[in-house]
Design a protein around this nucleic acid. Structure first.
Lengths: 193, 193
DNA sequence: CTGAACCGTTGATTTTTATCAACAGAATTT
DNA sequence: AAATTCTGTTGATAAAAATCAACGGTTCAG
């Protein structure tokens, strides 16, 4: 259960964890299971938890006034979920996060997470996590403003091919900022040639 | 010169800086001036510096195969500039960063920045900086995939009205992921009612 | 087991936005 | 001061993508 998290931390920090470190991490992170469609976070709440995905897949999205969902993030094993803004500032979130597949998570709260400050590898790994998240978001901004729908899809095939197997097409379409019909046509055209 | 940075750190960390802290920060951050249009970073280079803007305005953008520029970030006083990916991974950057107004910056390198690890307030402030950056990017992703051109402009007027005074309209348009003609028409319509 | 919801596709149409082109006022350079 | 570049507008047209609608094939829950 915790091995994936230990590996993640050691890998990103480039530092090994001591037995004591592991002990503390097991106390700080609490396992949680989510059934498919179950909410991890709902619009209007304050985001109490930050979670590491041990197994499963989640989606983070907004709902507009017409009821349409817009995927801000799709996440699978070894990714982190939470609304950093709500989590750190304690403000109500505008996002929903729910499970697309049954999930095993390791969750922590803002208060518990402070205990990690004594573990250099964990501090380092969390910093890397934030930086990676910022980089990933930056890339999405860059492609959203600079690329056509077709180019955005091609980039996803390149960079996150697993998403295509784990999430239905209409979610992928929303994640890419287009309708399911447009994505369907783009795929048709791409496979046709 | 350094006061703005001290204030920034103290404010974000919620902790005061000691005299020794200030001393170290002055050694870690080196002043740099940029003239309008001068590059801070060019596509293909490795991003050696991370900088705090004391005065001035910069833009970060990609250039597509047709030579069109796409603004990924616009930044003014109290903002940070750098390509986090290139800076941390030492990979060549795909972005350009240059000065739109004459700038006074405080710059640091990856190596020098490690000295900040001994200053809790600085560590905290840098972490906040990353989180804020990630949050800002997340919001842009969210609006890019979920909103119309008109809504994106309205949101900018709401959240960053100063940009409208500091940057020309065609840069704002690019930042919002639309052409200058479209932005011009949106503004016309908005002022007309 | 079966009716309902979900999923992806296709076609016709409309809306949004980009593109192309031309223009005039400002600012900058020489 | 003249010339050139930069800026924002406007109009006409084209392209991209959204919307609306309808359809079979799945999957799922009662």
């Amino acid at each position: 259960m915790y091995d994936k998290l230990f590996n993640y931390i050691e890998q990103y920090a480039g530092l090994p964890l001591t037995e004591t470190d592991r002990q503390i991490i097991q106390e700080v992170f609490v396992p949680m299971k989510l059934r498919k469609k179950q909410y991890f976070l709902q619009e209007g709440e304050v985001c109490k938890y930050m979670a590491f995905i041990v197994k499963g897949a989640t989606r983070q999205y907004t709902v507009d006034d017409k009821g349409a969902e817009h995927m801000v993030q799709l996440a699978i094993e070894n990714w982190w979920i939470s609304d950093r803004e709500s989590f750190t500032m304690l403000t109500p979130t505008i996002y929903n996060i729910d499970a697309w597949e049954d999930c095993e998570l390791l969750t922590t709260t803002k208060a518990d997470a402070t205990r990690l400050a004594h573990i250099p590898a964990a501090v380092q790994a969390l910093r890397e996590m934030d930086i990676n998240h910022a980089i990933a978001m930056q890339k999405r901004v860059s492609s959203a403003i600079a690329m056509t729908a077709e180019q955005r899809y091609a980039q996803l095939v390149e960079s996150n091919p697993t998403f295509l197997q784990r999430f239905p097409q209409h979610m992928i379409a929303s994640y890419l900022g287009m309708t399911k019909e447009t994505l369907s046509r783009i795929r048709m055209k791409a496979s046709g040639k």
